[in-house]
Structures are given as structure tokens and as C-alpha cells.
Amino acid sequence: PPGRALYEQMLTRTHDTNVVVHEVKCLAACDRGCTAVVAMPGKWGWLLGHLGPEKADDLMIYLAAYAASHSGSVMPSRRPASLSDMVLGRFPAALLTEHSS
């Protein structure tokens, strides 16, 4: 499936980086193609869609811009054109660090 192919493409591109790739079965966005989550503590997290293995290089460019951003926001003008429709939603950084009792 395309999601598995994207995962494999990302694994080959992140081998010598500090990007961590996890495979998940479902992000509940079936009508949005392959999906991914990008998140770092202290930054906005993003649900991305309309992805595929052919966009792996552009996704790596986006990840570098995301990592360099103070807040995790990457302006559309700083994203590769192939990723113009990828943002499906965002979530606050606090969700990555809060623990329930």
C-alpha cells in the first residue's frame, strides 16, 4: 500500500538524521491519502495528509524547516509546492508533554 511505501521511503531518508519515523496503522483520515504526524516538544504538532512515497524528498525538506522553526509553524511559502495541501490539522505542544495521573 502507498502508506507502507511512504514509510519505507522515509526510513531510507532519515537513516543518518535525528528524525524518528514510526509506522502506524491508521490516523483516521482515510479520504486524505497517506497521512503522517509531525511533532516535537515545545512546538505545534501537525496532522499531514495527501502524502505518498513520491513526496518523501519534499517531506524531508519540510521536516528540516519544521525543526528550524521556533514554534513549529512553517509558512506555506517555505514548503515545497507538492505539499501545498498537506495540512489537515494541528495540535498544541502541551499535548506532547502533559501526563495524566
Rank of each mutant, 00 (worst) to 15 (best):
residue 61 I to C: 04
residue 16 D to G: 01
residue 65 A to E: 08
residue 18 N to Q: 08
residue 38 V to Y: 00
residue 55 K to D: 00
residue 74 V to L: 11
residue 50 H to I: 05
residue 28 A to M: 14
residue 49 G to L: 15
residue 55 K to L: 09
residue 44 W to C: 07
residue 74 V to R: 08
residue 16 D to F: 12
residue 55 K to H: 07
residue 71 S to Y: 14
residue 4 R to D: 05
residue 56 A to E: 00
residue 69 S to E: 13
residue 33 G to W: 14
residue 64 A to S: 07
residue 49 G to P: 00
residue 18 N to S: 08
residue 73 S to L: 12
residue 57 D to Y: 07
residue 19 V to Y: 11
residue 54 E to Y: 06
residue 41 P to I: 13
residue 43 K to W: 12
residue 6 L to K: 09
residue 44 W to N: 10
residue 72 G to H: 05
residue 74 V to I: 11
residue 17 T to G: 04
residue 52 G to N: 14
residue 15 H to T: 06
residue 53 P to Y: 08
residue 26 C to E: 07
residue 14 T to H: 02
residue 69 S to G: 09
residue 30 C to V: 04
residue 36 A to Y: 03
residue 53 P to F: 10
residue 48 L to N: 05
residue 55 K to N: 01
residue 20 V to N: 01
residue 53 P to V: 07
residue 25 K to A: 11
residue 31 D to P: 00
residue 35 T to G: 00
residue 35 T to D: 01
residue 36 A to F: 05
residue 73 S to W: 11
residue 7 Y to N: 02
residue 25 K to M: 13
residue 8 E to I: 14
residue 6 L to I: 15
residue 20 V to F: 04
residue 70 H to Q: 15
residue 67 A to R: 03
residue 21 V to Y: 05
residue 59 L to G: 03
residue 6 L to R: 08
residue 65 A to Y: 06
residue 51 L to S: 10
residue 45 G to E: 10
residue 44 W to F: 13
residue 69 S to N: 11
residue 10 M to I: 13
residue 5 A to W: 14
residue 71 S to K: 11
residue 37 V to H: 01
residue 36 A to N: 02
residue 53 P to M: 04
residue 4 R to Y: 13
residue 6 L to S: 09
residue 25 K to P: 08
residue 51 L to C: 14
residue 43 K to R: 09
residue 9 Q to Y: 05
residue 66 Y to Q: 11
residue 13 R to S: 00
residue 4 R to I: 11
residue 19 V to N: 02
residue 40 M to P: 00
residue 34 C to G: 05
residue 40 M to W: 08
residue 46 W to G: 02
residue 9 Q to C: 09
residue 5 A to K: 07
residue 28 A to W: 02
residue 51 L to Q: 09
residue 47 L to Q: 09
residue 16 D to R: 04
residue 28 A to G: 01
residue 27 L to M: 08
residue 28 A to P: 00
residue 21 V to L: 15
residue 43 K to C: 10
residue 71 S to W: 15
residue 19 V to Q: 01
residue 58 D to P: 11
residue 8 E to K: 13
residue 27 L to T: 01
residue 68 A to N: 09
residue 46 W to Y: 12
residue 22 H to V: 03
residue 18 N to R: 06
residue 67 A to F: 10
residue 49 G to W: 15
residue 69 S to V: 15
residue 43 K to P: 03
residue 35 T to Y: 01
residue 74 V to C: 14
residue 45 G to F: 13
residue 60 M to T: 04
residue 63 L to C: 10
residue 42 G to R: 10
residue 16 D to M: 06
residue 22 H to P: 00
residue 14 T to R: 06
residue 23 E to T: 06
residue 57 D to M: 07
residue 67 A to Y: 06
residue 9 Q to K: 12
residue 23 E to F: 12
residue 53 P to I: 05
residue 13 R to Y: 03
residue 17 T to V: 13
residue 57 D to E: 11
residue 61 I to D: 02
residue 31 D to C: 08
residue 4 R to K: 05
residue 74 V to N: 09
residue 31 D to Y: 06
residue 71 S to C: 10
residue 44 W to S: 12
residue 40 M to K: 05
residue 30 C to E: 05
residue 60 M to C: 10
residue 48 L to P: 02
residue 48 L to W: 10
residue 50 H to P: 00
residue 50 H to Y: 15
residue 47 L to W: 09
residue 66 Y to S: 03
residue 52 G to F: 15
residue 21 V to W: 05
residue 14 T to C: 12
